[in-house]
Design a protein around this nucleic acid. Structure first.
Lengths: 213, 213
DNA sequence: CTTATTGCTGACCAAAAAGACAGAATTCAT
DNA sequence: ATGAATTCTGTCTTTTTGGTCAGCAATAAG
């Protein structure tokens, strides 16, 4: 009863719980302070464990940082591919894509911020991973858009920069949320704001695409 | 001959030169490492002076950071207002706006990155300034776009989110340049890349606007 | 030429923070 | 129940770094 295939002991369960609590806490602090500004002490505090115990689970700060980064990037790469939704029209595919990306901004604002800090800083730890994992998918997705253009399904737009624009326009709702809160006079961006944002961005992108019905 | 109105002595000239060299150096380091990751030592090194001498000019790190931030924000606020180009059609005004913002990304990538780090971190030092200086201009510019809509010059779009999208899409060429370099297989983004980018983004935005000829 | 001001340096200090390490406490396997 | 493995804590060390301070050097003013 208490036994499962992968030996779910009290310890192993606890370990999983704690690890993800630590990762969540680290995400918060790295997002707010950047890599250097984040202290292990503070991360431990948020995770409600001692610093020494934190170090027991993640022997050093770099490792913890890498785990947080890899986690968010994996989610993105997994969720974001034009190829997933095959057969549909460009417009529906892109609408789906924008919605997905927007939801990632809403669901993982901290991971998104950590990623942004990292990229702005020149991707010192993530560069290789971008080359090996992101670029291949990017190339495939660009190819898809090019094929749409060749088939005359959409205007002759710039595929690479289309993606850059979509990414920027969606990611900004995670990264620059403070600025928006100030400008929209809101304590925090709520569900309704995100819906407005999603609609606005989706419409912009669809028009940019110039999809032919 | 060597004298001018404001007493341009050898010292005062040198001071100006050094100060701006320091600010430039600080910008580079803050952009690459964030506030906490930047050390006064390293900034001094880049500026080719001693740490103590740096501290002589900027008594502490916070002050230096604030100066760098204020500098870039002042440039932006000065350069970016829809009201500047009055009388023209929405399309030309927006084209001009996007081009200006794009050039700021190209000319001041480091300032832009420092700003981005700051905002992502929750704008701990810049929040008040955003409220007092950016918001009023934002409100005015939003009003301009609303008037275009009311006059039937453009589609019934979401003005606030239009600006968020434009800012994100242009700023990304400063902040996320590394990612683009990886994805486009380039050592650095050159003039041609920026022109392609500017064209692409401008066309996207103009279409999003749905300007009626 | 002399004095006052400004610019700069070397030697320090104190705080913060990463993380090493020994050992205590808890849990697991038999 | 007991030995082994795992989890957790207290103490300490070392490094980094922001910043002080006393004094030396260069420049400006009279």
């Amino acid at each position: 009863m208490a036994e499962q295939r992968t030996r779910r002991t009290k310890q192993s369960v606890n370990r999983e719980v704690l690890e993800s609590r630590i990762l969540r806490s680290a995400e918060i602090i790295f997002a707010a302070k950047g890599f250097s500004g984040a202290s292990m002490e503070r991360i431990a505090e948020i995770a409600k464990i001692s610093k020494q115990n934190l170090i027991y689970y993640f022997p050093n700060k770099d490792l913890l940082y890498k785990r947080v980064l890899k986690e968010i990037l994996d989610i993105w790469i997994e969720k974001l591919s034009l190829l997933e939704s095959d057969g549909a029209t460009p417009e529906t595919v892109i609408r789906h894509y924008v919605r997905e990306k927007m939801q990632l901004s809403r669901l993982y604002p901290n991971g998104s911020k950590v990623f942004a800090h990292e990229i702005i800083s020149g991707a010192p730890v993530l560069k290789d991973y971008l080359i090996s994992h992101l670029k291949p998918q990017f190339d495939r997705d660009v190819a898809v858009v090019k094929s749409w253009i060749n088939k005359g399904l959409i205007e002759d737009i710039d595929p690479e920069h289309l993606f850059f624009t979509i990414w920027a326009a969606t990611q900004t709702y995670a990264d620059f949320s403070i600025q928006m809160e100030v400008l929209l006079d809101k304590k925090t961006l709520d569900q309704a704001d995100f819906e407005r944002a999603e609609n606005a961005v989706t419409e912009f992108v669809v028009r940019a695409l110039g999809a032919k019905k």
